[in-house]
Amino acid sequence: MSQDIVKSPFIQIKHIRKVYRMGNEKVVALNDVSLDIKRGEFVCFLGKSGSGKSTFLNMVAGLEKPTKGEIIIGGVHLEKLDEEEVTLFRQKNIGFIFQAYQLIPSLNAIENVALPLVFRGMSAKQSQKVAKKYLDDVGLKGYYNRKPSQMSGGQQQRVGIARALVGNSKIIFADEPTGNLDSNTTLDVMNIIVDIAKKNNQTIILVTHDNMIADYADTIVELKDGDIINISRPKQNQ
């Protein structure tokens, strides 16, 4: 089965539902969510805590399987892959940007950014060369040898962005990527994410509760209690 992403619509979400069991109770985290996402589109899932947005991200990233429904990326039915297949799929196609950065403390900036390339089999020398380019792209030239403890929160998040983008992953998942940053740093970080992803035609799926972050998106999907309550495409009207 080919796992290359080549078809449009790029991502098809068909009637996914996620139910968690807590003792004898059932908690519906997502309820019959459907959506098509194009290649290169920036989609923001907006909602308060408990709305289902992080559950959605986990489903589409292959971190959890839906209780019902289909998740199709480039013709690949993600929900049908076994654990090894979905891990390989993520390595090849997906990058993650986390709120808490998730950098490895013992590694410097270059080593943190190069790590996904090493996992893909690239040599250490070549992976570090590519990592330097992406660190330059996010404004961290000269910070190559600094470890996370030697950088500010904004600088650490820039390293996280470089790591997510370094392998030219086709999809970038961002989970509250600016949640730990001040407002000025937030704007800088969002501009970097959008500029690089657009240049490389990378699809962004971002979840947030922040309307200011949502304004960067091509499509805003509002969630409440596991349901889509509104879909808007504000940039089409600009």
Score class of each variant (00 low, 15 high):
Ile5Leu: 15
Val6Thr: 14
Pro9Leu: 06
Ile11Leu: 12
Ile11Phe: 08
Lys14Met: 02
Ile16Thr: 01
Ile16Trp: 03
Lys18Tyr: 09
Lys18Arg: 10
Asn24Ser: 13
Glu25Trp: 11
Val27Ser: 10
Leu30Asp: 00
Leu30Pro: 00
Asn31Pro: 09
Asn31Val: 12
Val33Tyr: 07
Leu35Ile: 13
Asp36Lys: 13
Lys38Arg: 09
Cys44Gln: 05
Ser49Gln: 00
Ser54Met: 01
Thr55Asp: 01
Leu57Tyr: 01
Asn58Lys: 15
Ala61Thr: 08
Leu63Lys: 11
Lys65Leu: 14
Pro66Lys: 15
Ile71Gln: 05
Gly74Gln: 02
Gly74Ser: 01
His77Leu: 15
Leu78Pro: 08
Glu79Trp: 08
Val86Pro: 12
Gln91Trp: 13
Lys92Ala: 14
Lys92Gly: 02
Lys92Glu: 11
Ile94Phe: 12
Ile94Tyr: 12
Phe96Ser: 06
Phe96Leu: 08
Gln99Asp: 09
Gln99Thr: 09
Gln102Met: 10
Ser106Lys: 04
Leu107Thr: 03
Ile110Gln: 08
Glu111Met: 11
Asn112Val: 05
Leu115Gln: 10
Leu115Thr: 04
Leu115Ser: 10
Pro116Phe: 12
Leu117Met: 13
Gln126Ser: 06
Lys133Met: 07
Tyr134His: 06
Asn145His: 10
Arg146Lys: 14
Lys147Leu: 12
Gln150Arg: 05
Gln150Gly: 08
Ser152His: 09
Gln155Cys: 07
Gln155Tyr: 08
Gln157Arg: 04
Gln157Lys: 03
Val159Ser: 02
Ala162Val: 14
Arg163Asn: 09
Ala164Met: 06
Gly167Arg: 02
Asn168Ile: 05
Ser169Cys: 03
Lys170Ala: 06
Ile172Lys: 04
Asp175Ser: 08
Gly179Trp: 04
Asn184Lys: 09
Asn184Cys: 03
Thr186Asn: 07
Ile192Tyr: 07
Val194Cys: 13
Asp195Val: 03
Ile196Trp: 04
Ile196Tyr: 04
Lys199Gln: 14
Gln202Tyr: 00
Ile205Asp: 03
Ile205Gln: 01
Thr208Ala: 01
Tyr216Thr: 07
Ala217Leu: 10
Ala217Arg: 04
Val221Phe: 12
Val221Gly: 09
Glu222Gln: 11
Glu222Phe: 05
Asp225Gln: 14
Gly226Thr: 04
Asp227Thr: 11
Asn230Gly: 09
Ile231Leu: 07
Gln236Asn: 11
